[in-house]
Write a protein that binds this DNA or RNA. Sequence first.
DNA 1: CGGAGTTCGTAAGGTTGACTTACAAACATG
DNA 2: CATGTTTGTAAGTCAACCTTACGAACTCCG
Lengths: 401, 401
Amino acid sequence: MSEAGARDTAAEVDAARGRQAARRVPGAFVAGRVLRPSTKVLPEHARGHNRALVLQTLFTAGQQSRADVARRTGLTRVTVSDLVGELIAEGLIVETGQRDGSRPGKPATLLDIGRTAFQVLGIDLSDHSAFRGAVLDLTGTILERAEVPLAGRVGDDALATVFELADELVSLSTRPILGLGVGSPGVVDPDGVVLEAPNLGWADLPLRSLLAERVGRPVVVANDANAAILAEHSFGNAEGDMMLVKVGHGVGAGLLLGGSLLSGGRFAAGEIGHVVVGTDGGEECSCGKSGCLETWLAAPRLEARIRRAPGQREAILREAGRRLGIVLAPIVGALDLSELILSGPPALLDGTLAEATRETVRERTMAEFSGDLVLRMTTLGDDIVLRGAAVMVISAELGVS
Amino acid sequence: MSEAGARDTAAEVDAARGRQAARRVPGAFVAGRVLRPSTKVLPEHARGHNRALVLQTLFTAGQQSRADVARRTGLTRVTVSDLVGELIAEGLIVETGQRDGSRPGKPATLLDIGRTAFQVLGIDLSDHSAFRGAVLDLTGTILERAEVPLAGRVGDDALATVFELADELVSLSTRPILGLGVGSPGVVDPDGVVLEAPNLGWADLPLRSLLAERVGRPVVVANDANAAILAEHSFGNAEGDMMLVKVGHGVGAGLLLGGSLLSGGRFAAGEIGHVVVGTDGGEECSCGKSGCLETWLAAPRLEARIRRAPGQREAILREAGRRLGIVLAPIVGALDLSELILSGPPALLDGTLAEATRETVRERTMAEFSGDLVLRMTTLGDDIVLRGAAVMVISAELGVS
DNA sequence: CGGAGTTCGTAAGGTTGACTTACAAACATG
DNA sequence: CATGTTTGTAAGTCAACCTTACGAACTCCG
């Protein structure tokens, strides 16, 4: 068949296919992603999506009129009005009066998230000394705090302590509870089962369902570093692909790629603490290997090393930063990360260590050319996991992050 | 407010929210992913999705009746019948007679992908000596091949060579052309602009739109390693998260995470060739650094090294494999990868090198515990990019991969 | 100061798409 | 041969978004 022949035939078939081009699955190969459709989609799913879209728009832009939202989302004013009506009835959106300033036309009625309609509970299990909790509003502002010392409890005792903290948070709340979010150390599956958390002596603990039964509200449980990076994403106005490294008793990370949290095939994504760094041995690790990243970077190890040789403080921190950079460089290169965030004790991380990591990653990747690799401390301090836990709930219940 | 009070109020609100629970955005926090809704969804998008779902079902399961598809997808028989009717009219599905074997009830009419309705063109620009192309059917079977020697051409000459190859493929096709897919070396943005491909002397070349104009049909352009991993995903029945390392003149990789291709913030995901390995120097690289992975692993470098010391062949390959393992270990740990695939000259990769990589990754990660890390050669040989290019077209045009 | 133009929000009716219900066709079984 | 099962289609319902149209409320300008 001639070239022209093939083309004509194709054009004819296109015509025969009628509207199919316009109907093409949106995003089938958008932004380099291939979607493999796996579940049916019904019209009501579209409704849910558009509901979340309206909420999301108000979350990020805030103080918008129905017409503004319509323009921003591409939905018609009529549809937005309908969705907003539904959301107002649920208390998730409130009218906040008319827009001031003089413009032609009927004045716009401004809308905002109904901050007081619900409260969210967040729990952070990642600290070695205490379980910490908070009551937050729908915008992620912390309203109340609670804390229960851990005192070395593990296993069922630790679980009882979580229950205790959850109960206290429920009693501290003054509005209907949208849900409870928990950031836990260890490996957590999508159903909120803590597959393993050695520090707490947990294995295959169905924490989500246990807590859901206890508080009678939706519960989301995820890894603490994953919660942290969600917080950074939502509140730290960080865009695009990024990785958050959380240094504490151990070392873990959360990865946000293309706006999606990476969970990993065995739900262990971000578990970089036991990756071996360098080929020159290193301290023995609790996992049995030598030279794991944790042996270089975990806070207790660093503190012990500095205690032994106070004069070497800067050198110790620089070496720790360099080791972190060596582990991160292949990851930054492979994932084309534009932003690395550190979370943990600022006294250890902020300064020499961060600088050494930044330099090492730059030296060992192409980042020196693209030049825009950012490595910085989190802006959310110690509340990062708490606020991330709240984000998970808001995201799960309202489809908004 | 008391605990009980908060709970009751929440329950009341839940009741007031009516069907909202059932309406919740599906997958808002499913599988550890947070969706940030960004575009509106209309009922016709659902239609497109369900169309693709039916096609996908026939792709993977093949030879099914309408009722089978309905059961598999969760859609009703009526809806499936309607969608199938549309797809038959377009030639994308054909009836292949009745199911044999005796069962109660009306015999089922079997359906299958209309393999002959369209043909797909694939082009592989990753080989250093020639551009290769093929005509494929909708199932990814290669029907015709074409090849144009490259003879060192770069820049506009190389582009003209691509045009030449594309024209030849069009003339070789005997059916309407669904589209043309291209796997190119270098960094390619989602719109098919080759941002940089040093080997071909291309920078900011809008290859997709140029080719679309030339062949008058949809064109998809992506990085060669990304095309390769899509092929492996579609034809190599590889599930879940995986990474494909492509060794040739350079070293690149493609990453498939949670079923999605990773593109990276600057569309440079998988560019691990210029990550530095180890802290002991290494050969100088074209990029200006020393000890880049490419200097250890690129085929020309390996061949030259073996030529210089034929007796050291095994040691050279083992060291190359070890270096690759050192780079991959942090990536495997961070992404919780379960499968690593090598693509390139089997004489170099398959055997000692792969074994050394496998061992090194195991030694340096937690993989020894989970134990199910697979590292293997691709099963698709030299056609991997060609077939991946076809997958991109089928995915983009039909929403099926 | 009043008409024209603009913008906002809502009402009414149309279109799309999947669902439920119902039914004819074609087969196996007792 | 009657009964039960499975397939595929026809008819009508429901959900959700769209287009069109309109009143309300404001600015601008002659």
